[in-house]
Design a protein around this nucleic acid. Structure first.
Lengths: 202, 202
DNA sequence: CGTTTTACATTACGACTGCATTGAAAAGAG
DNA sequence: CTCTTTTCAATGCAGTCGTAATGTAAAACG
């Protein structure tokens, strides 16, 4: 039954298999045939939906980003329409940490892409806008929510850079198994304490 | 003139070529032939000193670590025998940031190895001890140097985790070209401000 | 001196790679 | 019905990969 197939669905299916391969064996193991095997389809079909390997990679990178975005959206949702800045940031950033096996798998793929894009500046450029936007958002939340901003002890822009860097770095260390997720979570909270002032309620 | 050759020197020469290849094209481009070409030697010679590709990789990873260690040592040296904790940490961590092209190249390789070890837990285990030691050292410096530790506003262990994570994360973002080195340096100083208390002298 | 050992260079092999090509079958469109 | 388009499957090809095997020349050794 050809003709009536959902292209997006097929591509998502294939990208899913790609993610599994990449999570288990790294991006260098991502080949047409491996992905096809993981998706339990023929190599020909993979080739039908992605004419080149690079095309497949670019798509997969987009999938990684969308997954994270969606994850964050769902994590923030229960906080209501106007959440407290600190709680909002904590929910967002904690969600982006590889705290369970699913996020660990995605994290490994994201890390692989980080290294991948580091030697392919053209691909990396697409990520800059996203980072800039996220940075601005975080800075805004800090400016709005931290009492330490007023007296100049905290600079929103610099702190936002630091906070995102902490999140990224914690993720890397957890993925490398250098310390357990709880340690990362504690460090994230400590960082928020530093930025927002210690929270005696915890 | 065979026989009288320095094995370590040859291996270093080859590892050097490997680093260049990895920095420019990623670890997946690191093959016997590519490395041999970069080192301007025959593939046979590479094979003579590294019987397998994995062996070469393991050696290169060790080189990356030694380079960083040596770099930090040289950066800390001029501070004298008993440097102030904050200045010491600042010198160490700033040195580990990819602030110039040489460190950028090394950073790209390190990042590639991060992704590489993430799917090879056996190789990663060797790094754990190093991280633990570094973490303990940083925590010690914070405990000794931050006035905020006494009243409990700063926890040395958690802050150490956070500080190293910041450094790692900043490195990643700079490598990705998301912001310039100065931004990372500013964020690092801001982080030190948060941990040690703002330094009005700067 | 001859013999052994070391240091490479060269070649070969099988497995894999991305990709182009070809083919067939199924479901519209007319 | 025929014709065309889409969806896949299968095969082939040129190139790269890691690694093993073989060959050769030179220094060290007895």
């Amino acid at each position: 039954m050809p003709k009536r197939v959902d292209h997006r669905e097929r591509r998502a299916l294939i990208a899913d298999a790609l993610m599994r391969v990449a999570a288990e064996q790294g991006l260098e193991a991502v080949s047409l045939r491996h992905v096809a095997a993981a998706a339990e389809v023929s190599p020909g079909m993979v080739q039908h939906y992605f004419r080149t390997r690079d095309e497949m990679m670019v798509f997969a990178l987009a999938v990684v980003r969308e997954r994270n975005e969606e994850r964050v959206r769902r994590a923030v949702e229960p906080l209501g329409a106007t959440p407290a800045p600190r709680a909002l940031l904590r929910a967002m950033l904690a969600e982006l940490l590889p705290l369970d096996e699913e996020r660990r798998a995605d994290g490994r793929v994201a890390l692989a892409f980080l290294a991948y894009t580091a030697v392919r500046p053209a691909v990396a450029a697409a990520l800059h806008d996203e980072t800039a936007a996220l940075l601005a958002f975080v800075a805004g939340q800090i400016a709005a929510g931290s009492p330490l901003v007023a007296d100049g002890r905290v600079d929103p822009e610099r702190s936002a850079v630091g906070l995102l860097a902490v999140m990224e770095g914690l993720g890397i260390y957890v993925l490398g198994g250098h310390y357990p997720p709880e340690t990362a979570l504690a460090a994230l909270d400590a960082q928020l304490d530093l930025i927002f002032g210690a929270d005696p309620a915890r």
